[in-house]
Design a protein around this nucleic acid. Structure first.
Lengths: 194, 194, 194, 194
DNA sequence: AATGAATGAGGGTTCATTCAT
DNA sequence: CATGAATGAACCCTCATTCAT
């Protein structure tokens, strides 16, 4: 039975992702989430403590998924250059998906400044991202491509540029510029690492 | 009379700044703003069309102020190195002020993905920031310190790193690390430009 | 379940009838309606789109009910004279009921000049009233009592006098004069038709 | 000085007429009235006790004016037929003016069922209207055109038909039908009196 | 386990009224 | 006299949450 409950929770979180992406973090209602999940209004409250609890689980899940996708993509490659490229490609996957994810993620970042639960979830995400950078940089060192000693600092810089460029692209509101921001991001990172 | 009204509007915007910083964009109420301004509930609506109007004025004002401060600080200096240092110093002015500003600013960035008015205000801010970078890079070229040809791309990279590092620092929630993030940011920019 | 909901809607409309009759169309609040229905504040909004929706349903219902009552009463009779008498008797049913209904109905008439939805509901009511008059006049023609050829004109005249006398009686605010206004109305109509 | 004050009051009442006619009794605000009168927001409250006081004076004034106009028009004529015709012509003066006046007047009638002050003002208006009818009927008796003994009853019937037809016309919302309702009204009255 | 009716706090907004200037 | 800034009550409406079924 616990198995069934977990499925239901997944269904609700998935619906919440759609709902928040479409309506926005502040505009979304539990009714919206229930509608997207094709369940009745009381269900989200039945499977979660309250609205914030649903959204916190959503944040935890989407950051976890994104991380796994990025990690997988990077680990498929062998050379440092390819790994970095794969990383960036997976982050800048497509205008549509990026818009959807970052709309939600930006809302969470904004909330996280006042909400410790969100902050902690995001901290884990950052750590995970750092581990990806570390993998790439370790390989780069082996290959003697980028010679970086302080993995932590460089990893932070990489994520900084990814987030920074993504936000700047989001602010343009222009899908057509997605490719150029992606390239600029890749360029900036390699320039930085060289 | 118009003078007095302008002062009142300032008072309300200032109160809104405090209120949004404390409660967050979505949680703040007109009652909160009125309370922070020590006026009655109806006053914000008397001086502004509606809640969004108050907040849009707030965004416009804080971005404008930040820009002017940064510009002034940069223009006081003569060498490119000092200009960049002054820029970063002004951006990373203090944990307290940065926390206050970026709490509000992050909220607006999140909103801007769904609200054109905010998006436009932010676009102007980005342009202004680009003009500061340009000034620095122009001087750098003269001095032959950083040799950058594409000012736009480099300017974007600079702002990207500033925002990126600031957000990462915000997510730590730790005032003590402010200095180290500032240095990392400076380092990353100079590394990138070299 | 739908059955239950319909009952609830009826309950709210009935409460709205009382509330509007007591407080007036413009003065009545959703809170009033909720109070009269012995439900909480949110219920009217749960069963209806908004306040106007409640009131439009109220208008539609009371005009429909009045019409049906009048029609039934008229169709019970056989001679034209009796039919007319029954019509007038049903319209001028009692000071209490008339006061209640016309308080509400007058409010709606006043609103109808600015609100198309109300105007249309009233137009249907007028048509229904005209059909009653037509039935009476058709019978009268058979009996050779009143010889009227233009049913539409005469029907309009009948309703005109009914509404006109009723409003004049309302303005007296005097229940005791109800009978005399009813008689005057009947007299005026028969005089007009002869 | 009292003279000047009276002028100001007139100015406000006139503005209130325009404002109520345009916005409706329930929608009109003191700000609207002040705007139409080209005075500041505080003025209506300065010259009248409160909003209702303004509106009560408005009702008293417009009914008085209408009565005087009707009376004058009737007294210009000599024969009973012409007097009645002049009466009806003055009442049904034009679609525009009638719509303006009756929009306001209907609102007042609706209010009058719950507001004694309005009721009394309207009662005086009805008396005045009755006196006009009486004049006409007196002349008619002299001429042996309509032989009516009970002036009060007949006068009431006349006003009933006037109000009734006017309201029915208002409900059509159609300026083009104004003429036909006027004729129907005249016809109905003469039929009734014959 | 799931529903959805019901609650009621709290939001933004409007506006009559007051009152210092 | 006149202004219009300020007040705050009251409106409609939304929605998270509860709970009987």
């Amino acid at each position: 039975m616990n198995r069934k409950a977990e499925l239901k929770r997944q269904q609700i979180i998935k619906a919440a992702y759609q709902a928040v992406s479409d309506k926005g973090y502040e505009a979304v209602t539990l009714q919206d989430i229930a509608n997207y999940a094709n369940v009745s209004k009381g269900v989200p409250n039945y499977y979660f403590q309250n609205k914030e609890d649903v959204l916190a689980h959503l944040l935890a899940q989407i950051t976890e998924r994104i991380y796994k996708k990025e990690k997988e993509a990077v680990e498929k490659e062998t050379s440092a250059q390819e790994m970095l490229q794969a990383y960036i490609n997976t982050v800048f996957v497509s205008p549509e998906e990026n818009e959807k994810f970052y709309r939600v993620y930006l809302d969470f970042l904004a909330q996280a400044t006042k909400n410790n639960r969100y902050r902690e979830i995001n901290a884990r995400f950052y750590q995970n991202c750092a581990s990806i950078s570390k993998e790439i940089l370790t390989q780069a060192k082996k290959e003697n491509v980028f010679v970086v000693n302080d993995f932590e600092t460089a990893g932070r810089a990489i994520r900084t540029m990814i987030d920074g460029y993504m936000i700047q692209w989001m602010m343009t509101g222009d899908h057509a510029q997605h490719r150029s921001y992606k390239q600029a991001c890749y360029q900036a990172i390699t320039t930085y690492l060289s």
